[in-house]
Structures are given as C-alpha cells and as structure tokens.
Design a protein around this nucleic acid. Structure first.
Lengths: 248, 248
DNA sequence: GTCCACTCTTGATCTGGGTCAAGGAGATCA
DNA sequence: TGATCTCCTTGACCCAGATCAAGAGTGGAC
C-alpha cells in the first residue's frame, strides 16, 4: 500500500520506484548488485490476473508502474478488495508458498520481481532488509486497519469521499499536478472496482459520485477525470478528523 | 492477533506465553537474558485503557493473559474495533513514537512489556527478531484483510458466525475443552464490543445470536456461555469456503 | 457510417439492519 | 428485600443502500 515513506522512495528513483531501494533504502552497493542478479521484470496488460489466490507463488516484487488490486472472493461471487497496489508497493510474502489473494492488474502494469528463495536467503544475510520489510508491512497493516473503519462504520458518501481523498493525495504526491489549490487526477478504477473496495454496489458508487458532483465537492469531466476544488472540503466529507496517516 | 504459530508458541510456555519466545522462538540463552533485563510486567483491570490513540508509547510488549482490543473512534463517536489481542499477541510498533489506536483491556489483563529503545537496538543486533516480528506482522495483516471481507461483504448473521468461529477455534486451540464433537467456550466480549468489531449495532448482534440459537447452530447458557454442537455448521453459516487461515 | 461491448447513470422498489423504546435478568450493595 | 447498575433482549418502525430495470455515452471493429 501507499504511504509517505514509500512515496518518498519512489520520488528518489524515477525510472524504477524500487531500484531495490523501496525494498531497502539502506542497501550498500554490493547488496544492490546481489539483488540485481535475481531480479527480473514482468509486464501485464490491464485486466490481466497477476496471480490467483491459492496459486504457488515463487517470487516477491513490487510495482514499478501501473496499478494492481488485491481481492478476496467468496464462493457465491461476493468480492472484497483488500488492497490497492500502487507504484513502489510490495507484493508477496516471504515465508509463504502460495498467494492469499487474487492480484489483478487494473491498468497496464510493470512489476519488478525477485525469485523468492534467493530473496529470502539474502534477507537472512542482510538484516536491514527484514527491518525495512517490517516497516513496510506495519504501514500496510495500519492502512488495512484504517480501511476497516471505512468499511465498518462509514456511510456510502463518506466511503466515496475517503477513497477519493486517498487517490487524490497519492496522485498529488506523485505527479504534483496541483495548480492553485485544486487537485486534478484520473480515477484509476472502474465504478465496480471502487464498489468492491468500499463494500458497496456499483450503482451506489455512481449515485454518490453524482451527489458529490452536484454538491460541488468534486467536478467531473467525462467519467474518470476528477477535479477537487477544495481538498479540506473532501476530507470533511470523508469524516476524517485527522489529516495524516491515511493512505490506500 | 492470534494465529497458529503464536498459539503453538503459547502452548510451549505456559507461565508466560511470551517468555520472549513469542517475540523470538529462535533466541539463544544470552539473547533471552538481554530481553530479561529490559522486560517488566503491567497489570490492568477489565475496562481499563492500556493506552490512548495518539499517546506517547515508549514500550512494546505482548499479552500474557486476558484480552485487549484495538479500536478506532471517529469524532462523532462511531467506533470500529480493528484488532483483538489474545495471549501471545504483540502490541506496539518499533519505529513509531505514538499509539495509533486505543488499546483497552476487555478482561483483567497481564502484559509483558519491553522498553522500546533498548528493544529496538536489540532488534538491530539480533536479525532473527526482526524476521520473527515480520512474520507476526504479516499474519496480522492477513487477519486484518480477512476481516475486511467480513466487514465489507458479509451479512449480519454471517458476521456473527464468523466471529464465533474465530473465538471457538482460538479457544479450542488454547483450552482443549472439546468433548465429543462439541465446542464449549465463554464469550470474552460484550454484545457492544462484538458490534464494534463487526460493524453492527448491539441490537443486531443480540438478534442474530438469538436467531442462531433458535436455529440450533449454537446453544446458550446464560448470556456468555456458548456451545457449538457442530463446528462445520457454524463455518457454513459464516460463509467461509476455506477452513484454514482464519483467525482474529 | 452502424454494430457491439462495455461502462456508467438514473429511476423505482424492496429489505436488512439501524434507531427508538420498553422491559428483563443478573450482579452488587445497603 | 429491595435499589440500582450493567448488560442483554425484543418489538415497532424507518431509512440507507441493495436490487431490478431501462437506457445513455463512448469507443473500437468492420
């Protein structure tokens, strides 16, 4: 998941948000070289599944560009998105053989992968890599818990506003497309994907977005291009007291 | 959060589920002694707050006995429980100065704490402690994501059944109170706490528990003492396809 | 062009769970 | 033997969001 630390890292390294530094910003050159040897890139088209829940997973890696989602599905088809993977976010779990969630590319996606076994052995030899992964995992845990509040207690309108704030903030940090006070960005998700993230139906998502537009909280150009004239207004709609600490 | 690994650990060490081994089962004796030097116990009564969200947190630790909850609260009073801390579960975050959630003792609670600064420096010197914490954190992350599905997509009845399965399974692992095929345990939470965990109101929790009782899925003796005659029936009600991987 | 597929919007209606309200069942204390 | 408090149950009613249904853009293929 996205957070301030990984954003900072991704800004350092434009070509590849990882350059192994998202994995470990403290690595020395020889360690980076070792990582270099076991890394490879994988490219996915929008809509492609990166890995299915339950599949054998013999790599770990992180997102270079594009967006992927983590989803869980019940046997009757109900699905819940449990994570949004943005550039520099880490995927995979050292110490586990199979994937726990479906990972799907929402947009065209480039991933930087490391074969799991050598990555793990490197981890035992290079303590600060484990520490770095621990920090990242704790950030993700916080994000997941933040999202539990959204799912459990917020209204549909608040949920939409929460999601828009997250995307807006992430986009502002990465692209710096601010002019005046307004934030402008493109929604990287369909209404259905937003619904799966928010525990809503796509109709409700559509209705609430329309309502926010009607009330002037956001402006829409087409279906995906969003302008937020007043970010604090949006945060207010999201019901977030604190401005900090929230991310995807 | 509870999981199979930490359960196994807690079974090894009856007196104190940690004995530092929940922190690291691989520690050598001299490392254990170092931990011994910086450890201390704290005792809380049922209902007491261990720490408030935003407070300075200068320790990490884990639960020895009793149950605590992690909750988030919005300024209008809506609250969402984001974690249930059972014996051997870890609390606190290396590298962060303030608590992110309210931690409240639900029952009388004994915690084994370590002062944060020395614990952190020990962590950098003892790589497998960081790895152990990483494993535990990844387990918690999985649990949080599992819970996102519960919060986002399950019905009230399924939510109750999910929570009961978790508690039943945890209790079965710890206390081994199985006779015949039935599981028997006491609910460690009030209806209100269950509601906060499940994103429901306490009235709905009460109604759904009554419904499950009426339908023979569970039996109740008093308000808290539960018998599950057929665990697979309960799991079925919870809508869980897979039996594994679920915990609090 | 004009199909077709996909995504999105909007309306009408229904319903699960929230809200409000009135007790009940145990505890603890005097 | 109540008095009171906390926790829980149950009923009546209501509403936010689900469901069902009917289009409206939009864009690619031919």
């Amino acid at each position: 998941m996205l957070n301030e630390r990984s954003l900072a890292v991704s800004q350092q390294c434009a070509e590849c948000p990882i350059r192994h530094r998202a994995v470990c910003a403290r690595c020395e050159n020889d360690e980076l070289e070792q990582l270099e040897e076991i890394k490879y890139y994988r490219r996915f088209e929008a809509g492609q599944t990166v890995i299915w829940s339950g599949d054998r997973m013999d790599f770990v890696g992180s997102v270079v560009s594009g967006i992927a989602t983590l989803t869980q599905t019940m046997e009757d088809g109900r699905t819940q998105m449990v994570g949004l993977l943005l550039p520099s976010d880490f995927v995979g779990r050292p110490g586990r053989a199979t994937a726990a969630y479906d990972v799907v590319a929402t947009t065209d996606l480039l991933m930087c992968c490391f074969r799991k076994a050598p990555f793990e052995s490197m981890m035992t030899r290079t303590p600060h890599i484990a520490q770095r992964l621990l920090e990242m995992t704790l950030d993700e845990l916080d994000a997941a818990r933040e999202w539990m509040l959204v799912l459990g207690r917020k209204t549909a309108r608040e949920k939409i506003a929460s999601l828009l704030s997250i995307i807006a903030r992430r986009d502002a940090s990465i692209n710096m497309r601010q002019t005046s006070g307004a934030l402008v960005f493109d929604l990287p998700l369909t209404r259905e994907a937003m619904a799966d993230y928010l525990g809503l139906t796509l109709e409700t998502v559509s209705r609430q977005i329309s309502a926010l537009r009607k009330d002037g909280v956001i402006q829409l150009e087409g279906k995906r291009h969003v302008t937020v004239p007043d970010m604090s207004r949006l945060l207010d709609e999201a019901g977030d007291d604190s401005d900090g600490g929230l991310f995807a």
